[in-house]
């Protein structure tokens, strides 16, 4: 008994006092977290409600059912838009990973005249807002016959200044010894980039892939402008048409939105471990 009491005192003595700053931090984080998660919860909640219950704001539906999911998934248009979005986002992501890395690597690891100027030129395009670019993109698509086509949706994002900048900065952290060792082992410059440098910047590639995929999966403005036929709509454009066509069917829009989050979650789950894992320095003595 005495021992227990002693332990009790010890525990109480070891417990850190709760600082007011900490309470404030947690409160701010909690409020922020709730603000973030509430729309998501309502999205899932509404997707389980019938049309009549949509404006009933309780979080847990009275009679939850998956009818909306069945309705949306059996509607051919939804699947088409879903696949369009998947195709566009995947292609643009792969293209960015390939070209941004290639240009970033070249700018980071090769000495040539005009290298700095080229980098600045690429970087300066970051200062031009998308809204300003839409008209030239549209004119270009129109003149080249790319309007209302997959290529038309994808071409502006196939390579980005941000991605190039991100990859260049990461490739600069790859020690030259790795590349020189590969050069001596007989790899050509393309192989060195692909087989040695790229695996060493996996965290950056993953980050770039997640950003690009999310950006393109949720892209609305440009796909809306460039597409006219419904078969070419991407998911956000298609879902918005639910709201315009008939009276707004919130339960269907929310079901579509809930389904639309699945691929982004998957991409994040698959790639996040590469971001967390820092493999770079394991082969070098720091």
């Amino acid at each position: 008994m005495a021992e227990m009491t002693a332990n009790g005192y010890e525990l109480a003595a070891n417990r850190k006092p709760i600082r007011p700053g900490l309470i404030l931090t947690w409160t701010v984080l909690l409020v922020g977290g709730l603000l973030m998660i509430t729309p998501l919860l309502y999205m899932f909640s509404t997707s389980l409600k019938s049309a009549g219950q949509v404006y009933d704001l309780r979080l847990i539906p009275l009679a939850p059912s998956f009818d909306n999911y069945v309705k949306v998934l059996s509607d051919g248009r939804f699947m088409r838009w879903f696949l369009n979005s998947a195709l566009v986002a995947t292609t643009v992501t792969l293209s960015n990973v390939f070209f941004d890395s290639l240009v970033g690597y070249t700018l980071a690891k090769f000495e040539f005249r005009g290298r700095y100027f080229i980098f600045l030129a690429i970087l300066s395009t970051l200062m031009i807002p998308t809204e300003m670019l839409v008209i030239p993109w549209y004119l270009m698509s129109s003149q080249l016959g790319w309007l209302d086509s997959y290529w038309g949706i994808m071409f502006p994002g196939m390579m980005t200044a941000f991605g190039t900048f991100l990859m260049k900065q990461f490739f600069e952290t790859v020690p030259d010894d790795f590349l020189e060792a590969a050069r001596i082992d007989g790899l050509n410059e393309f192989e060195i980039w692909w087989k040695v440098a790229m695996p060493l910047v996996m965290p950056a590639i993953s980050a770039l892939a997640i950003f690009t995929f999310l950006g393109n999966w949720t892209a609305f403005f440009w796909p809306l402008i460039v597409t006219t036929s419904k078969e070419l709509y991407t998911l956000p454009v298609g879902l918005s048409s639910f709201a315009v066509e008939q009276s707004i069917q919130w339960e269907l829009i929310m079901t579509g939105a809930a389904l639309a989050t699945i691929p982004t979650l998957l991409v994040f789950l698959v790639l996040q471990r590469f971001i967390v894992r820092g493999v770079m320095l394991a082969g070098l003595k720091g």
Partner: peptide, 27 residues
């Protein structure tokens, strides 16, 4: 370098962290 058939060992080892020991040697 590859045409000279020489091999080099670097101060920082420069062994590839994403490959196993066997693959590194085999490289």
């Amino acid at each position: 370098p590859k045409q000279r058939n020489i091999a080099m060992v670097f101060q920082n080892y420069a062994i590839y962290p994403h490959m196993s020991v066997g693959k590194n040697i085999g490289f």
